[in-house]
């Protein structure tokens, strides 16, 4: 039977792992290669590296970190952050990534998904979707525009049928795109997996957003990774059951030593979730 996956996520900036709350106030967590190895030894099912470096120098350092990591762990490794063109993907796969996670560039140009999937296969294209509940984003837009476009706003609102809007740029930019219809389009264009992050829940430790997770997982035919909000082992259980997720992304819950991958896995097994047997 296919097992539910626990996937530690490491935000890497200038060669260090950092962790923030709601994408702000970053705290230093440690050396990426060391942390990656530790999570592997504890029984992580895959790993995700997000490059949040903003500089050219930082990106070079990241490639080096990626190579050193890929050479020392024998687990699937997904890499995301700042991927804009096919050449970026080729470089990352060449440095040892197994999958790439596309976010903003895919929203800006959906053809990029088809191109990446056609070139490298759907199995290595993860579409990361950041969502916000409600139509806050549109309300923000509303403040900026004139009365003449009021009707366009109500059009936009009616387009957010799922009640969740896709946001980009670490949650700062609304897009007016409905989360569920974007997930469907990503799948149709060749996404092999969807990494769904609730920007409201991210960093809160109050649990994953089960509503949007279950909605998208139930509607698309590719695996869905729930992300954002894990604070307790129960939250993982809820995402994999009520949320219908195929995998859970974990970060803060691990980084500060509250729980280990092994303890999370044992907890899930104890509650009847099929997880990988320890080797």
């Amino acid at each position: 039977m296919l097992k539910s996956r626990i996937i530690p996520c490491l935000d890497v900036k200038d060669g260090r792992v950092v962790k923030g709350t709601n994408f702000a106030s970053l705290r230093d967590v440690g050396d990426p290669v060391e942390l990656a190895k530790r999570y592997c030894d504890e029984g992580a099912d895959e790993l995700v590296y997000l490059d949040i470096s903003a500089t050219v120098e930082g990106r070079k350092t990241f490639l080096d970190t990626l190579e050193r990591t890929a050479d020392s762990i024998f687990l699937p490794l997904t890499v995301g952050g700042g991927i804009r063109v096919v050449d970026d993907i080729r470089r990352l796969l060449g440095a040892g990534a197994d999958k790439v996670s596309l976010n903003t560039a895919a929203v800006a140009n959906p053809d990029f998904i088809s191109e990446a999937s056609g070139r490298f296969g759907c199995q290595c294209v993860v579409i990361a979707i950041d969502v916000k509940k409600g139509t806050d984003g549109i309300t923000n837009c509303e403040l900026r525009i004139t009365n003449e476009s009021k009707s366009e706003i109500s059009n936009l609102k009616s387009q957010i049928a799922s009640g969740y809007e896709v946001v980009t740029h670490a949650g700062r930019r609304p897009t007016g795109i409905d989360a569920l219809s974007w997930a469907r389009e990503a799948e149709r264009r060749g996404a092999g997996e969807i990494l769904l992050t609730s920007m409201d829940a991210d960093g809160t430790k109050n649990g994953y957003d089960l509503e949007i997770t279950s909605l998208i997982s139930g509607e698309v035919g590719v695996p869905v990774i729930a992300s954002g909000g894990a604070g307790k082992p129960e939250h993982l259980f809820d995402a994999l059951t009520t949320g219908g997720a195929d995998a859970v992304l974990v970060a803060g819950i691990l980084h500060f030593g509250t729980y280990t991958v092994a303890s999370l896995r044992d907890y899930l097994r104890g509650r009847g979730i099929k997880v990988r047997s320890a080797s």
């Binding site: 039977m1 296919l2 097992k3 539910s4 996956r5 099912d45 759907c122 199995q123 092999g192 997996e193 035919g221 590719v222 695996p223 195929d246 995998a247 990988r276 047997s277």
Partner: peptide, 12 residues
Amino acid sequence: DSFKVPHMGWNN
């Protein structure tokens, strides 16, 4: 029963 494709992850 529905099954996600690709078959992705650890299986025995």
